[in-house]
């Protein structure tokens, strides 16, 4: 097991280096000179330009710049935003809880609905429930979520007036946010109605972001269950006279969960990509909206740093899933 962990960790190093190189290289080929962008509409004189170029190190060879960037990254220094002048690292982790809260809610929704849906479909294979659930899952899987978000806004915010259209909480409420999770902070603040307001703001974005993972989990659970239900030990359990409910929940589901867990782990990337669209539509102040805004503002250090941090986060989750997989399934370790 130790060997397996070490070898997986070793592959992390070159990938991390490559990801840093790519996010560095991307920004250097972006059209538009960063200094001219920073100067804004007033423009900049040649002397001031040279001075700034020297200050940011743009006048030095590319490999020196990259090396400086890379060593900076290792120390948690991703440069400062052109627009707010604050460190990218601080901005990222100030906004990250908002995205994390939304993603966790979406994932919980997807698992809570997706797992039972998959199991029910597998157990009722070929019958009405199976067909209905799997057709719905396929629609969810094919959903353009940006349109789905607009539809939900039309119905629930526009026609019914049940949910707010944007933001994380009503402007009426103001309280400190020690955790950054609106649900926890609003509850801790003790203000009447704050928690309810936070929930109402969360509902639509959660549904929108959870739709595709929900469909994927339901489909995966169904196919994993079907595979397991055909195994010999399930037949043995049946022959022994065990009740179907016990077979499904204890024998089948537990073994079917392995591929499902992998899918859950791998959908972190999907969630982050979905967060870009969801947060933009609902003006959710998280990483996704921050990245889109920065791309439009040509805030290079932010795009560079955000791209890198998001990729590293996906890598860490994938690595964790791999390790868990090795832990559950000893066959994998041997390779």
């Amino acid at each position: 097991m130790l060997n397996y962990v070490l070898s997986r960790l070793l592959t992390f190093v070159p990938t991390f280096f490559g990801v840093t190189l790519i996010s560095f290289a991307f920004i250097r080929v972006l059209p538009g000179d960063p200094i001219i962008v920073m100067a804004g509409e007033r423009g900049v004189s040649q002397e001031r330009y040279d001075q700034l170029a020297a200050q940011f190190g743009f006048d030095r060879p590319m490999y020196v710049q990259f090396w400086e960037y890379f060593t900076g990254v290792l120390q948690g220094d991703l440069g400062n935003s052109f627009v707010t002048k604050k460190p990218v690292w601080d901005e990222f982790f100030a906004l990250f809880p908002a995205t994390l809260e939304l993603s966790l809610c979406a994932m919980v929704l997807a698992i809570v609905l997706g797992l039972p849906a998959g199991v029910i479909a597998a157990v009722n294979r070929g019958k009405f429930f199976d067909r209905a659930l799997m057709s719905t899952a396929l629609v969810g899987y094919s959903m353009p979520i940006f349109w789905w978000a607009l539809l939900l806004i039309i119905v629930f915010s526009g026609n019914l007036g049940w949910t707010p259209v944007s933001g994380r909480i009503d402007l009426l409420y103001y309280f400190p946010d020690p955790t950054g999770f609106m649900l926890i902070d609003s509850l801790a603040s003790g203000q009447k109605g704050a928690f309810w307001s936070a929930i109402r703001h969360l509902i639509l974005p959660t549904i929108v972001l959870g739709t595709i993972p929900l469909a994927v989990i339901a489909r995966q659970t169904r196919s994993a269950m079907l595979e397991v239900l055909g195994e010999d030990y399930v037949r043995t359990a049946r022959a022994k006279g065990m009740s179907p409910g016990r077979i499904n929940s204890i024998h089948a589901l537990r073994n079917a969960l392995i591929p499902v867990i992998t899918v859950i782990g791998l959908s972190v990337g999907t969630l982050l990509a979905g967060a870009i669209l969801t947060e933009t539509i609902f003006s959710w102040p998280g990483i996704g909206k921050w990245m889109v805004d920065s791309i439009f503002r040509r805030d290079y250090p932010v795009v560079q740093g955000g791209l890198l941090l998001i990729a590293v986060m996906v890598m860490i989750v994938n690595l964790t899933v791999d390790m868990l997989y090795g832990l559950i399934n000893p066959k994998i370790r041997k390779r």
């Binding site: 990938t15 790519i22 990337g269 990509a273």
Partner: peptide, 9 residues
Amino acid sequence: AFPSLLLAL
């Protein structure tokens, strides 16, 4: 390692 839509963006 990059979320596809973000990388495309």
